[in-house]
Design a binder for these strands. Structure first.
Lengths: 221, 221
DNA sequence: ACCATGCTGGACCGGTGAGTTCAAAAGCGG
DNA sequence: CCGCTTTTGAACTCACCGGTCCAGCATGGT
């Protein structure tokens, strides 16, 4: 989640001239630091001063770039969601070139996905969305649409293809995708006790296998 | 700081029965009000004064009974967990006398469970556990053990019986129970957008049916 | 060299809320 | 009716934090 690398610019400044470019990865650093701090402390207990410190920046600079603590939070969550989604989509994209044993291929993807979903960024994101759904109701749409929703959709696409090819029985691919993901993430969350216990690779593998097994039994052609 | 002030809790007093039995149970009122407020506001933004007000009690009384805001939170969560679990266990207990069509019986129980899990108390509890897992790590054990854990165990018991009776194929009942619950709660959480959208009964029914369908396909004898 | 722009550090204000104190007012047992 | 404990209301302390202001510093473009 730390994105110090000084790439890019494109600051969309509201007032005409682009703000200083090249040097301003400050914004990225701030957003990254913000997510880091919010993830550790939670929204309310987190204080902007610490965000500034972690970002290596002065407090007024934070307010300069992001304005509000609320806005800072929203933007940080948005950015983190994009990062997490990217990796998730890469995982599911592997289903596109699925050759050979269906069961094995699905199992492999399942393992990768459950790994990603148990990773710190993904867990922190879920935690924060859950936590602040009361104070930031739009946030659930904003984040969910960029992560879980997109993931389910991409997976549904792949499953639909497999159905057409006769490798899976005909069924609503959206429901199938939803259930596959639930079979993966549900047990993972439960076993890891919401992330407080880190699961050994073997257990992750077992969860992925069990989920794939059940899914294939229910959905094989 | 730790534990209680010297004056000690009202009811469980070591010195016989002296305290507070005749009077309304303030303690219960406080815990109930506390969960109410915490559920609405979240832990950090909630303030003890409001808890006291909702409980119809003076602020020092709250500190008298529960000591700390932290302790107040823990106790309130504990109490709420017990309440929620009770209803959940009643649902799964219906599987004990399951006669006739397996599919129909499971579907019925599934529908009841998904209703319970989407109810406000259950959702609020999940929200708060997720939210504060960072600041209160023990809480996840404490609550999960009383709700999801116990529920999964009870369900596993029922499934094991069904396997012995030859109605389900032989399989690890714990894994089967875990997956059945995941198939129920996962889609319910996703569709309700973490509780921000209340699901119409028809959709709840559809989720329960889909979950049961998939489960039976995968686990029928 | 010079100015503009933004960054810095630090002081500062104002609000909020945890937790305490205390004297007065119930309740309740005897 | 009397003491015991508990409750009450209110004021109070104290710490923390969001947000702002300002005076000086770095920088890069021209």
């Amino acid at each position: 989640m730390l994105g110090y690398p000084a790439t890019v610019t494109g600051m969309t400044d509201s007032a005409g001239r682009a703000t200083a470019r090249g040097r301003i990865d400050k914004r990225q650093a701030i957003l990254s630091a913000a997510f880091d701090v919010f993830a550790r402390r939670g929204y309310a207990p987190a204080n902007v001063a610490e965000v500034a410190e972690v970002a290596g920046v002065a407090k007024p600079t934070v307010y300069n770039h992001l304005g509000d603590k609320e806005n800072l939070f929203r933007r940080a969550m948005e950015a983190a969601a994009d990062t997490v989604m990217e990796r998730n989509l890469r995982d599911v994209e592997r289903l596109r070139t699925l050759e050979g044993d269906l069961r094995a291929g699905l199992g492999d993807v399942a393992y990768r996905m459950v790994q990603t979903c148990c990773g710190e960024p993904s867990r922190a994101l879920r935690r924060l969305v859950h936590a602040e759904v009361g104070q930031f109701p739009e946030l659930v749409e904003l984040v969910q649409a960029r992560t879980a929703g997109r993931l389910a959709e991409a997976l549904a696409d792949r499953l639909a293809r497999l159905s057409l090819e006769g490798r899976l029985r005909a069924a609503d691919p959206a429901v199938a995708a939803e259930q596959f993901l639930s079979l993966l993430t549900g047990p993972a969350e439960a076993r890891s006790r919401l992330g407080t216990r880190k699961l050994p690779a073997a257990e992750l593998r077992a969860i992925a296998e069990a989920a794939t097994d059940t899914f294939v039994r229910a959905y094989a052609a």
